[in-house]
Amino acid sequence: MAELTYRDAVARGIAQEMARDDDVIFFGEDVAKAGGVFKATVGLLDQFGPIRVRDTPISEQAILGAAMGAAMTGLKPIAEIMFSDFLAVCWDYVANEFPKSRYMTNGQVKCPLVVRTGNGAGSRFGAQHSQSVENWCMMIPGLKVVAPSSPADVVGLLAAAVRDPDPVIFFEHKSLYAVKGEVPDGEIVDTLGTAKILRPGKDATVLALALMVPRALAAAETLAAEHGIEVEVVDVRSLVPLDMQTILGSVGRTHRLFTVEENPRLCGWGAEIVSIAVEEAFYDMDGPPVRITTPHIPLPAADALEDMVLPTPARIVETIRRSLGS
């Protein structure tokens, strides 16, 4: 067991898979010599050399297109899009090419690739370098969408993504890169499509993803300590496939459902989960599901302003406390 940062876990996960399989290659902007702008890929160039770890020009379409062409022909590319906001400049590949190639060709074309991308707010970078865009990808049939919250999950889910035969969009949260956590020694391979109950509780289910997971856990501490409310915190981890069994199982025990989402309100991932829960577990619930999200606005740059709009532990506590009427 070693304590690793989330950013070091990224490099460890990539290295684990590159050491295992020569078909895994890795490229993106500033990822090789510079070790990534978030320093999440330091050491990979030295370990695996310039044929397998490559710096690219600022050409997001070429990065994702080349990843797809390599994936179709037998390699297992990992491509980095530096900020997830930049998926918008290569959206054709994410929305039209990766996810539809297998279906349109009646199963002839495969697309086993991973796009890693820095997602989320907290760095005070403003509206075009801070978004949480996992919900953009969630709505496209054919993609898999993962967003880990801890260093151990980064390694295990990244390994699972690389080994997965489908295109996986892997959202790393920029504000988690410095967070430390225990990571078991040896090879770690997790399972896509599995949510994880991080804290059991009987009074409400709280779903969270990525940076919202530690905030939900902090809120749970306060709710228990100050209000006697025991919430069950579920790290959703994977939006596609979506582990509804774990989520509905939790709701069946707690009878209340809350989501904590960093994405702006409309069509956030919680909206889909809530709609499923309402259809399938309506009579299990003692009150309406409640979504705690960033409001439907572009993100401001100023720290004072950004802090006002992202869900905080205090807001989570207050929303749950009021909803439960205690």
Partner: peptide, 30 residues
């Protein structure tokens, strides 16, 4: 598309397949 004939697809979004062809060429080179 006919992968068995080496026809790796016909792409209907203008320009999309030029980078994809680069990726296939990368595999051949690698």
């Amino acid at each position: 598309t006919s992968v068995e004939h080496g026809v790796m697809g016909s792409y209907a979004i203008i320009g999309a397949h030029l980078p994809i062809a680069c990726g296939a060429a990368l595999t051949a080179q690698y």
